[in-house]
Design a protein around this nucleic acid. Sequence first.
DNA 1: CCTGGATGCGCAAACGATTGCACAAAAATA
DNA 2: TATTTTTGTGCAATCGTTTGCGCATCCAGG
Lengths: 339, 339
Amino acid sequence: MGSKKRYTIHDLARELNTTPSTVSRALQDNPRISVKMRKTVKDLADKLNYQPDFKALSLRKGSGRTIGVLIPQVDRHFFATVLSGIDEVATAANYNVLICQSMESVEKENALIRSLISGKVDGLIASISIGTKDAASFKMFLEKGIPLVFFDRVIEDLRVSKVLIDDYMGAVLAVEQLINRGSKHIAHFAGPQHINIYQNRTRGYIDTLKNHSLPIDEEIIFYNVITRETGCQAMNKIIEMRNRPDAIFSSGDYSALGAMICARESGLEVPGDIAVTGFANEPFGTLIDPALTSLDQHGLEMGRQAADLLIEEIEHTGPNFVPRTVVLNPELHIRKSSR
Amino acid sequence: MGSKKRYTIHDLARELNTTPSTVSRALQDNPRISVKMRKTVKDLADKLNYQPDFKALSLRKGSGRTIGVLIPQVDRHFFATVLSGIDEVATAANYNVLICQSMESVEKENALIRSLISGKVDGLIASISIGTKDAASFKMFLEKGIPLVFFDRVIEDLRVSKVLIDDYMGAVLAVEQLINRGSKHIAHFAGPQHINIYQNRTRGYIDTLKNHSLPIDEEIIFYNVITRETGCQAMNKIIEMRNRPDAIFSSGDYSALGAMICARESGLEVPGDIAVTGFANEPFGTLIDPALTSLDQHGLEMGRQAADLLIEEIEHTGPNFVPRTVVLNPELHIRKSSR
DNA sequence: CCTGGATGCGCAAACGATTGCACAAAAATA
DNA sequence: TATTTTTGTGCAATCGTTTGCGCATCCAGG
């Protein structure tokens, strides 16, 4: 029953008493093959449901039309969204998408990169793991001549295209809104400072305070606070303070959430006693009460742009390729938590 | 600068004044090659950072060690979680993961399947789109002899392995909990009934009412209510009723959420006036107030099991292969919304 | 009738690896 | 010393396509 077997171009040729080359050309509508022959071949191909073998094609053409996506974890909303954007563009351009999760582990990340340089992919879109501090693996990858595009979490000094959001600007927007609403003593949850995005958010926070002649108080800057747990811990410290901050600008939504939950448990009101602004605009932000003010990163758009850049580089990469950096503007969604 | 070029086995052979075959064997530790030669070859390979070409290897071996994952949308938490589970197992077994999103479109789904039968993947894990009603594409796929495993949303009468959760049982658990807490007039948000999972949830709801001698009232069964919007609309109808239900069992968390939000807007209290139970255990369920009672589907585990089944089938598929169905037990997380 | 250019198709090399087989040289046996 | 066995390599086919080139056949122009 059924055509269990996969047909090759040789099978078709034998069937038609011709040669593989003719079949191949006929299927490609090569004008050097007679119209009649082309039709004959195509009819048979249709009938047998012939499809050229992907692996053979890849070898011959030197490309499997595949792009890799290396991200920390696919089941985190932001990354899933970016991936979706990448997939949208890639599929439209007839590329396949290979997915690789580093699980925030540098070792896994390195192993994945190593496995990719064997020519599995025509290009790679990556966002580095939280622990990644040296660029050796990525350099090696680049040396093989495979295009690479970073998004969000990038290695600054690598000569590749990047898609970022303006984290600095985001921080400025957020902190200014807090200042505008009357907050004068604004705490900050900072992320690991060796990662570009967190560093920029912190810089934006500090500069904005300065610009508004507000003092910088290291006491109320909490480092490495990006999870719900650490956010809660930080909030507990804040609650103890004699000169308690009246607002928090958090580098992440999860730590903002943790803070809000712990605040409520201690009877502190958001935004009445303390306003809170997050970063990432996770979907849960609109569902909690009070809804969380946050900065949207346009994940879908980031993915699309990254894929555009990469495909452009794959297909039109000249000898004098110049990497580009696309910077997206974050969007501040002001909600109840900072009103 | 740098080794921009990718080396082949021929390059190594030339460098060492030997032949590709010897190099190949040496790299594989073939005992027919002298220990000395093996070392020489490996040293050079290391030095040049040689990696066998993936495409050539795939063609020769007849497999690219790649599995495809076809899902409606990667940026939905459940699917992202399953994907993560699949990736975990696949990576451990040295498989690549190719991702395909149908975006709930039957046409896209069919196009993707067509593109996959060219031998891109050694097997496919799929969850069908909401509109998929006929199995033609999947049958065609199977006829090419490529293993297929369904999860969650499956086509019942296809002879393939499946990983499911016991949706019927989940509904029973949920409805019984509502009954136990004293609810007597339980409404139901049903999903599209041509999808196995929604049908089973509805069946569980009906049977449980019957088993407890509660009347089935078609008036309070709302079909195709799985989004936030439709959940809200349904709730608005419920609010108008003279004989208002005192609980809702929803086939999805989003419609449950929509209902809760609209209930609050109308001054109806959850769970005081009406209890709500969802399905999926989306992460936001614990963040909203009241927290949402829901059924966890063990997405990660589903992904792992699906990948296990598929890889097993790929590698040990005998002539007398018998598809297996793994059924996972959903877990009811009782939270404030149904207390 | 002869020459020259289309026209239509086949041969064989290539992509980069693996592998069955053959074949030297060295070692072991007679 | 002659013969067999072992040891180490090389040749060439193969996986399924694509494609440069060559070679017939045919038709038209001179």
